[in-house]
Design a protein around this nucleic acid. Structure first.
Lengths: 113, 113
DNA sequence: TGACTCCGCTATTATTTCTGTAGCAAACAC
DNA sequence: GTGTTTGCTACAGAAATAATAGCGGAGTCA
């Protein structure tokens, strides 16, 4: 597994600039979705798995490990997974994405049927 | 190749809700990065390839086809690729990500060495 | 105690995606 | 013509993901 940590050479960036490392981390399968699904609070690993359309536990565990190492997600006994304050800040930047997606859907379907 | 279009069952979403389709589309390798690299204007396919750390042309072409089908990116003869107005709106939501990435880098490195 | 349930997580194999390299046909310049 | 750049493709190997089954640990309750 490749960890994405800033200021190092990471997958997807020769420079290791923070934003490149972040784009790489968030560009892995289910990463954005996992953060999205944690928007309302704690979820156990199995609840999270179900929320993500029964994603394979292999990939889910990989993503959770990476996102935890990146300090965006936390895991607590008897509670499950949740966003850290930093992860919450990241999600807050993505929340308007929902409204955008609705407009995107309308325009795309209008043009392409 | 799987197209990501809203209100259909797409890869990564059984419901086909627009935001899920969008998260799936943006969660594919190099998708976020490509949009990011087009922030300053037109780039030819080879300039774009170079900007993305010499990404394999196979994947790049896949992403460009998908993003064009999604109406986020356009291709014009003798100019190359650029964001559509809709794609520009999407990027504008991601631009603050740069500042966030810098803080993320600082905090992550401070905690984990 | 022992059976039960749910937790986070792992093993294994098959499939899909991505990488890396080379090269194509078309359009333009000289 | 020769040369260059364009978007794009073929191919084989490497890596990531999917799908299914199941593990040990911790809690609950009889």
């Amino acid at each position: 597994m490749v960890e994405a940590r800033p200021r190092r050479t990471v997958r997807g960036s020769r420079t290791g600039r923070p934003v490149m490392a972040l784009l790489d981390l968030l560009g892995r399968r289910w990463a954005l979705r996992v953060i999205w699904e944690l928007r309302d609070g704690w979820l156990t690993s199995r609840q999270l798995r179900e929320a993500c359309d029964d994603v394979s536990p292999t990939v889910l565990q990989s993503r959770m490990s990476e996102l935890r190492a990146a300090g965006l997600i936390t895991l607590e006994h008897r509670h499950g997974y949740a966003l850290t304050p930093l992860g919450r800040e990241l999600l807050d930047q993505f929340l308007p994405l929902n409204a955008f997606a609705e407009r995107w859907a309308a325009e795309t379907l209008a043009e392409q049927g």
